[in-house]
């Protein structure tokens, strides 16, 4: 195997990539090999053209047309109706809680995710392999089960003696749980690739460990942390399943954006639902563009 920048990263990564984390890894920085135009790529033959046609029709029917329908439905009744739907106090409260908690959770993830990735890569101890599986559990676990799981430690019958069910702490915990793997899994492969020589050089020139970390390691991790943070934020604002049993979905208190959309759908207020959904959709699109820009920039320096 000839090591190209992309293959080294793939090959050196001894850990399983988690369900969406597979996307995280490949989507964050591994993207460079997807985007690097294969030298041997050819133009379409009649058969591959037909395949592309069929694939595009299915993709449109499943993804593009339905998502367009959300935007059309949101704008169907005009700008003032759109604005009214978004500026109702209950919706505003939900959006504020969702975005505020997502920012907070992403900040925690930036610190803890980097720390976890560091320990997984640089530290050696028994049971480390078990931690690898534990990191992936939030991805693989169905979200409704995630809610039940958190409820058992932080709910009414908590062995810790706390009861955070139906509070904003529950929203925070649920977001924290479902976003756990993102930054860990984007930072980990980059940390594995990092050359020890550079750190040793910095140390031999008299830099303290903290200085080395701040000036040598952190800049190399920054793109990975950023893309992990973007994915983590995006995942948090779109979370629904784990909150259903855990947060009580109390208006003005613990109701998040996706729960608000759900209750609008159940009340047959599709335009209102689509208006809030359009906000989430736009954020998702922005995140995809940001990730594309980051992976492009990383590919340029690689």
């Amino acid at each position: 195997m000839t090591p190209s920048p992309g293959t080294v990263e793939e090959a050196q990564q001894p850990v399983p990539t988690p369900p969406a984390g597979a996307a995280t890894n490949a989507g964050g920085l591994g993207d460079r090999h997807r985007l690097r135009r294969a030298k041997s790529a050819t133009s379409l033959t009649p058969i591959s053209g037909l395949g592309l046609g069929i694939a595009l029709i299915w993709f449109s029917l499943l993804v593009l047309i339905p998502l367009t329908a959300v935007l059309v439905q949101a704008s169907a009744a005009g700008w003032s109706a759109y604005w009214d739907a978004l500026s109702s106090p209950q919706t505003l409260a939900a959006l504020r809680l969702t975005i505020g908690t997502a920012v907070l959770v992403t900040a925690v993830n930036v610190v803890m995710g980097t720390a976890i990735a560091w320990v997984l890569v640089r530290d050696q101890f028994r049971g480390k392999r078990l931690l690898e599986v534990v990191i992936d559990i939030p991805f693989a676990l169905p979200t409704i089960v995630a809610g039940l799981v958190l409820l058992s430690l932080y709910g009414a019958s908590s062995p810790l003696g706390v009861n955070w069910a139906n509070t904003r702490v529950a929203v925070f915990l649920a977001f924290l749980f479902v976003t756990l793997p993102f930054i860990v899994r984007t930072v980990q492969p980059v940390l594995l690739e990092l050359e020890h020589e550079v750190e040793e050089a910095a140390a031999s020139l008299g830099a303290s460990r903290l200085t080395t970390f701040r000036l040598v390691i952190l800049p190399s991790l920054a793109p990975a942390i950023t893309s992990g943070a973007a994915l983590s934020f995006c995942r948090a604002i779109s979370e629904y399943g784990s909150l259903v049993l855990l947060s009580g979905n109390l208006p003005y208190s613990t109701e998040v954006a996706s729960v608000r959309i759900m209750s609008s759908i159940e009340g047959d207020k599709l335009t209102e639902a689509a208006a809030v959904a359009s906000i989430l959709l736009v954020v998702a699109l922005i995140v995809i563009v940001v990730l594309d820009v980051i992976s492009r920039r990383v590919a340029r320096y690689a």
């Binding site: 779109s238 996706s258 995140v287």
Partner: peptide, 11 residues
Amino acid sequence: LSVSPVVVGLA
């Protein structure tokens, strides 16, 4: 992967 499941359902 980035779209909320609730938005998927609505769409």
